[in-house]
Each structure stands twice: as structure tokens, then as C-alpha cells.
Design a protein around this nucleic acid. Structure first.
Lengths: 135, 135
DNA sequence: ATTATTTGTAACTATAATAGTTACAAAAGG
DNA sequence: CCTTTTGTAACTATTATAGTTACAAATAAT
């Protein structure tokens, strides 16, 4: 994956998890990541929509909306990434060529199988496994 | 993976494999992919360096340099991609924050494990498995 | 040897995704 | 009512990929 959205989101959730009940602002989280608050809020917005966190205008993030052990990396991935694929297939092949005509569906099958294995691994790791490392 | 280099390279090698002994030009291959010859040659150059194909100035690609069953998707991936990682980790975190200081190494460990599973799957599929679909 | 053809590569443009930034209305706690 | 923060829009900057043009070097074939 080209983007660091998953990685940054895990960072955001880790900070929130470790603060427990204590409210945290996007500004505080941004300082830990060394980026700016708007970028954090953009991801926070997705994480809130996925019901991972509780926020309050005025106070900031109130904490996790579900237990860390019930949030998998795959859940986070789906929450913040628009695409669900890990590999890209080139399109617009020549349909008059027997290979060009069949390559797309062939690669899709092969890639799907590989991606499912990856997703299973992502689903096997939870936020709880990550924050364990920070204690 | 954001790029389609692996996917295009598989396409290139499939065309070459199916042509057998008969020489093919980058122009012919490009027409199957619906792209231009220079892009194909750029990838061909990598595939040649990896000893997957034999080329001849003047005649074009002479064929595979090793059997299709001995070329795995992982081999092709390493041949044409500069990076070996599938996931990106954001850097430049705040080292004064306990989480910022440890997130990078923590994510690296977690991601490495996941990526190894993906690479194993990529290594389990060969070019022979792919071209079987075109016959 | 000469010629025609193709690779191999450099240099460039175009496109698209991500990352980073600024700004501000709306919400809500105090 | 005031202050603070979210939530979001709009924008710029950066980077990777994809696509294109051009041409020297290599080489098969005559």
C-alpha cells in the first residue's frame, strides 16, 4: 500500500487508547505524529464514522467507543482507505488479443486469493496487540 | 501496491511464453497491453536483468530464459519493483512522545509478519499457473 | 560492409494520489 | 454568551506512476 493512512490511524488510536478516559485534542495527537491537526481530524472523522472513537466538539476525543481488542487492523484499513485492494491490475488491454482479453479476470482471481491471505493476517492483529508494546 | 508494474510484467511474460521460440517485439507486446513500446521495453530491461527472458537487438525477445514453472510472482515483483514493502509506515514522529518514539519499530514488526505471509503466497504462484489459463 | 530493425535508455510531460496547510462555520461545554 | 474544538472544504506541494518522444548502439541479414 502506497499510503500511510493505516499507519497514521493506528498511531492516532494508540494515543487515544493510552489516554483512557482523559479527553485528547487533535492538536495533541498531531504533535505526537509530527503533523498538523487537520490531517488528524480528517482521519478521526473516518474513525468516528466507523464507531471506533467518541468525540466531543469542545473537548476533543473522549476515548475509544469499543475495546481495543475488538478493533482489528483490517477494520481500521477499511475505515480509512477508499480502496479495498492491495494490488492494482492494469486495465484497457487489447480485447482482440487472446491474452489481453483474459488477463484481467485471470489476475483478479490470482490476486484475490493472495489478498485474502493478507486480509486474514490483518484481521488477526488488534489494537490491543499494538498498545501492549507501549506499556 | 499502488503500481501496476507487476501486473503488466506478468502480461509481458505471458505473451512471450505463449509465443514459444518465435521472436516477439516490444511493439507487438505493447499492442496487447494497449500501451507504448518504450514502457514495455523499460520493464523488459528489468526482466532481462533478472534472467527471465532472452532478447536480441534487431529480432526482439527470443523467449523465456527459464521455464515458466520456475518463475514465481514474487520473483517478478522483486525484479520490477524498487521497493520490497507492501505497506508504508509514516516516519518523522515526535521522539519526545513515548508512542511517537516506538510506533515505527512496532509497526515494522507487525507489518513484516503480514508481508511475509503475502510474499509466501506470491511465491506459490508461477508464470506456468498463469499461462495455463490462456490455453 | 551496408542496411534495416529493434533494443536499451534518457529525458521529458501528464496524471493522479497522498500529504500538508489554511480557514472557518457549527457544535457544545462551561 | 464565550471559548474551544470538531468537522470539512478548498487549496498547494510533493511524489510516484504512466505515458511519450527521441536516438544511439547493437545486430541479424543481405
Amino acid at each position: 500500500m502506497y499510503s500511510t493512512k493505516l499507519s497514521v490511524s493506528i498511531h492516532i488510536l494508540s494515543v487515544i487508547a493510552l489516554m483512557g478516559e482523559k479527553p485528547v485534542t487533535s492538536e495533541y495527537i498531531a504533535s505526537s505524529i509530527n503533523t498538523n491537526p487537520a490531517l488528524v481530524r480528517r482521519l478521526m472523522s473516518r474513525l468516528k464514522r466507523a464507531k471506533f472513537i467518541e468525540t466531543s466538539t469542545k473537548l476533543g476525543v473522549m476515548g475509544l467507543a469499543k475495546e481495543a481488542k475488538d478493533i482489528t487492523l483490517l477494520d481500521i484499513f477499511f475505515a480509512v482507505e477508499d480502496q479495498t485492494d492491495l494490488f492494482s491490475i492494469h486495465g484497457n488491454t487489447n480485447q482482440n488479443c487472446p491474452i489481453g482479453a483474459k488477463i484481467e479476470i485471470t489476475l483478479k482471481d490470482v490476486y484475490d486469493d493472495i489478498q485474502n491471505a493478507t486480509k486474514q493476517k490483518l484481521a488477526a492483529v488488534t489494537l490491543a496487540d499494538i498498545i501492549k508494546e507501549f506499556k
